[in-house]
Amino acid sequence: MDRILVSPSPHIHARTSTSALMRDVVIALLPSVIVSILYYGWSAMVLLAASVVSCIVVEYLITRFMYKAPSTVGDWSSSVTGVLLFLNLPPSCPWWVAVIGAVFAIGVVKMTFGGLGQNLFNPAIAARVFLLVSFPTFMTNWAAPKGFIGGVDAVSGATPLGIVKEGLAQGMTLPEIYAQHDFSYLQTLFINIGGSAGEISAIAILAGFIYLLARKVIRPYITLSILATVFVFSGIFWIVNPDQYTDPLFNLLTGGVLLGAVFMATDYVTSPMSDKGGVIFGVGIGLLTILIRYFGSYPEGMSFAILIMNSVVPLINKFCKQKKYGR
């Protein structure tokens, strides 16, 4: 011991790290990824690879050549964005759309603000909305490609929410629409073909949620307040007019509410710091989602709701502070 090390206290550290937290998020996403690859087959794999690889490459290039700093790829955050982007795309979407989405997510939404921790909007969600606006045909083509199991070959179709929206526009009532397309909750819960890659299984998403909670990566307040708000708010409408407004369970299980509530809204960077703020944030997302679904022109509203609430996070952080000792 030639030279004693000196540093200010504390001298020990919990040894949590950004990369470990992000790696946990990737692990939590695995069930959804595996299920969607099993059911959507090769095209899903290509899409996943395109999305993750391009996210990592874009981040690497920007940190090295624009920031002229050591690469931050090792913190796993670009991988999280890549996987989330894949889960937000229709499985039949061409791989180059995923690449464009990745460039937008990392290059525009994340890195222009200064990289990890600095961005205002969730990169994956912002990229999804960007793609939805730029490539509406690809982004609303819900044809399911052939998977490794399940044997569903190119089931055409729209998402349940899309079917409802269209039916309502044609002046049908909900029971009539349901009668036309046989629809079961049980199916949504386990395997639901039709929708984004990540919407395939509610159970898989919940498994990820439980993993994140168990590893203390996230706290449950944001997720639960979104789900509760969606349930209660849509429930009120449904009680008033069950012919016109979809029921609460339907709203919970469709259109990426679960995916968004568990993985997108809980993103550290773009969600409020305090639990109180998290509840406000979650309630806001829930309300906006239902409002967009019932009264907007897009069938699902989760992405827009999250983006809108992302923009008010700084305000929430400013006004929702935890109680200080002795004040």
Binding site: R3, I4, L5, V6, S7, P8
Partner: peptide, 15 residues
């Protein structure tokens, strides 16, 4: 000695 804290003379001199 070696210093392992935040690289700032102020912090260091207080320590």
């Amino acid at each position: 000695n070696d210093y392992g804290g935040y690289s700032s003379c102020k912090v260091k001199s207080a320590l």
